[in-house]
Write a protein that binds this DNA or RNA. Structure first.
Lengths: 251, 251
DNA sequence: AAAGAAATTTGGTCCTACCAAAATTGGGCC
DNA sequence: GGCCCAATTTTGGTAGGACCAAATTTCTTT
């Protein structure tokens, strides 16, 4: 179509189609830059630019001094791109709340759906996840993992990989927040209890109840997240005050 | 933290923080590469790499032979990144269905929410969108726009910009499909009727009914989308057959 | 003051070179 | 033969210079 197309884009498109067609198989290494340079009869600049492009679109995963690894993109890679793009929005309290709100909305809808349409197997998995969750109440790290696993069952039950990717993205976004939360066995217990109530509501096919409990559950979680947020604000305030003093001294 | 960090990343981070702080104001041009080169005491290679990075993360919009334009990212830019990343998945029938399924799920949940919590203003906007929709039944292009506008009201009613971005992304993904649909006034009429039923259900605060109609509405839409998909498949089949004949002739 | 021509700047591409980190090779040892 | 460690080669990251065509700016002309 367009004759004036940047060279890197053409190379990237060629490689992209080879990745999609399987000529470059998933998980294998990309040829070295000098090999590609040779093959495409172009400069290393262009090759490296093309690699950067493919990386940004999720066709490759690159580590600083290593050969790029080919990755046939799925929905997860699509979402891995948003992760970076939105990362900055998570430092803003309102942005994070907006995001968390969509999660609440999503999971409320999920449990409603499950309460109405859960199959036997879904129930079994939920039960198992709940049990694993119970075993870890006294271990915050392990509890966090099983907590995630419990929620993941909800997404998985949709039988559509996109939901799983969405869940993983939420987790990734919230991970840094969780790492700043203090250990609190009481919180674990509360979360477990709420999980149990959700499970029971689904078991009893009570969509209203399931949705309601999930709403409460996640609003409670939000309070935890918000708390870490305010902790940080206090810290920065303190450090600002400190630098303020320093500047006074300088004056 | 890490002493072994790629130079381009450091430059990108510096520029990123300047964009976020407003030192580089939204809409303004980035300094020329040579100016940046001078400022950061590094090679043009690194500068260009940093620019590519910022571009891929939505902090800049670049046109081939022009200065990059600074863009303070919002949720929409975050989603604009997914648009590219997922575009290839839309050529796969299963991928598109998975995507459409999430839209159905989302909008069913939206109308349920609206039926339960719509405020007077939301109703007014829905009514207006519906009326505009009605006026365009005989004009597919205009109908398409008002159709989108009607659904957009649902997302907007959540008072959270993320929902709007999600909607825009769905629209963008499906746009190319719609462009391949044949004009069909009958289809417009059907869609309008369904919109009306949804509106009425919300008006009557009948969440179940609203959700049900929305489900039917979007499943019908899916049939339209799917149809365009099969049209393409037939065409490629035909062209393949043609090339097959050609090769026979060559033999 | 507006329009057009000339000069300058800038982005895209190419090349060469260097260094440190990986990958590969080659021994030497068990 | 198989395994581990050192020497060697290859490779990715960065620097810096060069060239061209497209953009931009400056200057001239009307």
């Amino acid at each position: 179509m367009e004759k004036v197309e940047r060279a890197a884009i053409k190379v990237a498109q060629t490689l992209e189609s080879e990745i999609l067609s399987g000529a470059l198989s998933d998980g294998s290494n990309l040829p070295t830059e000098r090999q590609l340079l040779d093959r495409f009869c172009t400069s290393r600049t262009v090759i490296r630019e093309a690699i950067a492009l493919l990386d940004s679109r999720g066709y490759l995963i690159t580590k600083p001094r290593h050969r790029p690894i080919v990755r046939r993109p799925g929905f997860d890679s699509a979402f891995s791109v948003v992760r970076n793009a939105a990362s900055q929005l998570l430092t803003d309290a309102q942005g994070l709340r907006n995001l968390f709100e969509t999660r609440i909305f999503m999971e409320k809808a999920l449990v409603r759906h499950l309460a109405l349409h859960a199959r036997r197997d879904d129930i079994v998995q939920l039960k198992a996840a709940l049990e694993a969750n119970k075993q870890c109440i006294d271990n915050s790290e392990a509890f966090y993992q099983t907590d995630i696993a419990f929620h993941r069952v909800l997404y998985r039950a949709m039988n559509n990989p996109i939901y799983v990717s969405i869940h993983e993205t939420y987790i990734l976004w919230l991970k840094q927040r969780w790492q700043q939360m203090p250990d609190c066995q009481q919180r674990n217990q509360r979360n477990y209890d709420e999980h149990t109530l959700i499970y029971q509501a689904i078991l009893e096919r009570d969509a209203e109840q399931a949705e309601k409990i999930m709403g409460q559950h996640l609003e409670n979680s939000w309070q935890d997240v918000k708390m870490t947020f305010e902790l940080i604000r206090q810290e920065t305030k303190i450090s600002e005050a400190a630098t303020g003093e320093a500047s006074l001294l300088i004056d």
